[in-house]
Design a protein around this nucleic acid. Structure first.
Lengths: 343, 343
DNA sequence: GTGAAAGCGCTAACAT
DNA sequence: ATGTTAGCGCTTTCAC
């Protein structure tokens, strides 16, 4: 039977033979171990080149009990929010010589467990558990992980001693509100998503804090709560504009809500931003395509992913890990719907 | 020094010892090799359970020269088009017991080469080379791959004997045009992207074919070519509407173009779809958020990814591979901008 | 500076 | 039906 080797059948032995040295020596030059004479080093290098030798990392991993591989399990590969995080994780990992396994759990614990099972069997050095939905608390990983480090991304836990990374929704709520305040708006409506989402609560608190810091009284009548979708945004904006004293700005806790609010305002013949300024939240793909293009608060997805990668790699290098929740600051994306002068 | 094993230090030996059998026997029960007495089988299973034993897949891979792992190299992890393909690849792979390495080349050959290098070193069983931009031809992989199967996704080559998978842009162009024709539109403008993109050429040909099949003469004055962005869509739609005989529908070769066209039509006070129907292409995330929501031609990204995964896995199983370009049919996404009655 | 030998954890002939 | 043996390709003492 022919040799059914996956890629290259040439081994360290073949190189050693051609270079007329021992496999041990070849290994040393491959791994930059000092105390190899320059002369033999060159001979080995030449042999490697000639044979187009590529070390078998599987064998090396077995020997060193270390794979330079991490696992990324996400519950969402449809990906409104996951793409940017994945990108920065991949970047951090590959920069440091690590590869990343991509796994989709669809949010099902049984699938998460199955993926963890194979990741552990494949001896990954660490695992990132990433969510693609609104921030929420969740429990421990679906499987006992032994000594493999984990970090939670876009979700958090208090069950387990691991670092968690989420956006600073409160800060984002304050940021958007402050921006409108600084543009001279004084009656700022707040159109929120369901309050059982932490993001909604936090964003609302941020809104209230910013108001207070500017010496503006909080008016509960200006706050409306619905679902996350356009329809809610449309209806709640209409409610707000029907107030005896309608707002001069609407801050929506999601871009979908803002899209609906824009519809309502257009329907009322109001000019945006002259009559009513609008700010969204999430920086979704479509926000720049709204009319007018939507000013919004961007989730720091890229930074969150980098941080997750860095924390995990540090943990893999043996740095002790703590139960911390990192809240990464959101940023303001200025477009036309808020009425700010272009930068 | 303490045992610095990544996850579980318990090996097949430990299990064997506890179950009072040889490692070989344990291996047999793990791998469902027949001719193990039910009695010892149970003893082994119990030992595995008690020790929480998990086979070391790295060791197994070394032994079997087979990793059940594939590599996915993409040039774009910002991801307008890649997410859906990734998702289906992951799904097909994990269903068949394969894991997937995610790599981003940023479109740079040097990075592609580096990634290929480590994928091969890690003994992947196969590789998917995925693009995230408009379909185009590209050359051979940046590295000699030996006998590792490859498939090209959302890009193609004629340099190498591999399967390639791209969307059927021609069919998509015909599909959108036919849809408008069937709705009774007779003067259909076509707003295209740069002609050096294959997608533009193909979509235009599809448009022409559909026209011909309906017995409508092709009028070159109705075809405009620009860039892919909104600004072009806006300008070209204005040009079209300024014609002595303006169109009653505009088919745009991308959703960005369509967004711009929508702007122009709104500016002219035209009703969509009553006065002018609009159809886009690509089914971008924002297309459903247009006003009115945009009817568009969806790229079959999910299907393309599945096909890529399936072809690759078959190749890994030894099925011979051919130089074929698979063109996967696009689908019509009916929304409000075309004036079709809702399904 | 270089090599011999042992072994990472597993599987697959081959015996028994 | 079970065990013995011999590696998979590599790294790492430890001699020399």
């Amino acid at each position: 039977m022919s040799r059914k080797r996956s890629a290259n059948a040439v081994t360290i032995h073949d190189v050693a033979q051609l270079a007329e040295v021992s496999p041990a020596t070849v290994s040393k030059v491959i791994n930059d171990v000092p105390y190899v004479s320059e002369q033999t080093r060159q001979r080995v290098l030449a042999a490697i080149d000639k044979l187009n030798y590529r070390p078998n990392v599987i064998a090396r991993s077995l020997r060193k009990s270390h794979t330079a591989t991490i696992g990324l399990i996400t519950d969402d590969l449809e990906g409104v929010f996951t793409m940017a995080m994945m990108r920065s994780i991949e970047e951090v990992a590959s920069t440091q010589g690590f590869s990343v396994f991509l796994c989709n759990s669809y949010g099902e614990m049984s699938r998460e467990r199955a993926h963890l099972e194979v990741l552990l069997a494949k001896q990954v050095s660490g695992i990132i558990l990433m969510s693609g939905y609104k921030v929420r608390e969740r429990g421990a990983p679906a499987l006992e992980l032994g000594r493999v480090p984990v970090v939670y991304l876009y979700q958090y836990t208090t069950d387990v001693d691991v670092p968690c990374i989420i956006p600073d929704d409160l800060g984002g709520g304050a940021l958007g509100t402050r921006h409108l305040l600084e543009l001279g708006r004084r009656r700022i409506g707040f159109v929120n998503g369901p309050l059982h989402f932490e993001a909604s609560q936090q964003r609302l608190i941020g809104y209230q804090q910013a108001l207070r810091n500017h010496g503006i009284a909080f008016d509960p009548a200006l706050v409306r709560t619905g679902k996350w979708n356009e329809q809610s945004g449309y209806e709640l904006a209409h409610e707000l504009m029907a107030l005896p004293q309608p707002p001069d700005a609407i801050f929506c806790a999601s871009d979908s809500l803002a899209a609906g609010a824009l519809d309502a305002l257009h329907e009322l013949g109001l000019r945006i931003p002259q009559d009513v300024a609008v700010v969204g939240f999430d920086n979704r793909y479509f926000s720049g395509y709204q009319r007018p293009p939507l000013t919004t608060i961007a989730l720091p997805l890229y930074e969150m992913g980098s941080l997750a990668g860095e924390l995990l790699l540090k943990a893999i290098q043996g740095e002790p890990t703590h139960r911390v929740i990192h809240r990464v600051p959101c940023t303001l994306i200025k477009r036309l719907s808020c009425g700010a002068p272009p930068d």
